[in-house]
Amino acid sequence: MSAVALDKPANATLRRWTDFFLLIAGLVVVWYLLHLWAGEVALTSPYETVAKLIDLLGQAWFWPHVGETLLALFYSLLIASIGGLGLGTLLGIHRLSGQVAEPILVALYALPKITLYPLILLIFGLGLSAKVAFGAIHGIIPVTIFALNAVRNIKPVYLKTARVMRLTPLQAMRTVWVPAALPEIVSGQRIGFALTLLGVLLGEMFASQQGLGFLIINAIGLNDVPVIMALALLLALFAVAVSSALLALDRKLHQRS
């Protein structure tokens, strides 16, 4: 991989982007072939889907739903990323509680949390809080696991160096702990984002009268395939965009360390 980059540093970026767009073009072709195979009723063509999406984006009633989803996503991310980071850091610093908690967290991570949605609804009722809770329980666990491992796996020699140089706790935090743990923490936040979005949408599908998830479950009920496809495309574009940005940050931090 690096050999290519060393040969032609100027062309590598260009080629990477060309490859990426070729891949996207390939996916669109596959989509179109599937459309031809499955028929108009089952799968709308790429062109129609984009046209439908643009049509939806042009309508005034559509935007409050987007806003509602973004608001729920914002609150859930706030809880998941800050809560997970705090919890993970504490568990990472205190070795014994980390050892005790890790398998429990891993077990919780693997649970199909959708099973719990009736419980969440019974506790929070319909509306924003249920969606936020649903998003947060999806996102908080991977963030915690990654933060825990990030803090626990800091090389002991770094911490010893900090002690030898008699850094104050604040200095040690700023110059040793944070830079050492940050790459893994960002990886955790990336996965946390993906799962939080999934959780919020699931929550909206069952527990809401507003938001994109609600529009999807509505379209599913009416078997309105163009709307389903247009919304799926919108969500996929949003998810890939945010995730790619976090991935780029992630790569940069990992390279540096």
Binding site: A194, L202, A232, A239, V242, L247
Partner: peptide, 8 residues
Amino acid sequence: LASYYAVP
């Protein structure tokens, strides 16, 4: 691949 799981 990295953003796959964000798509419902």
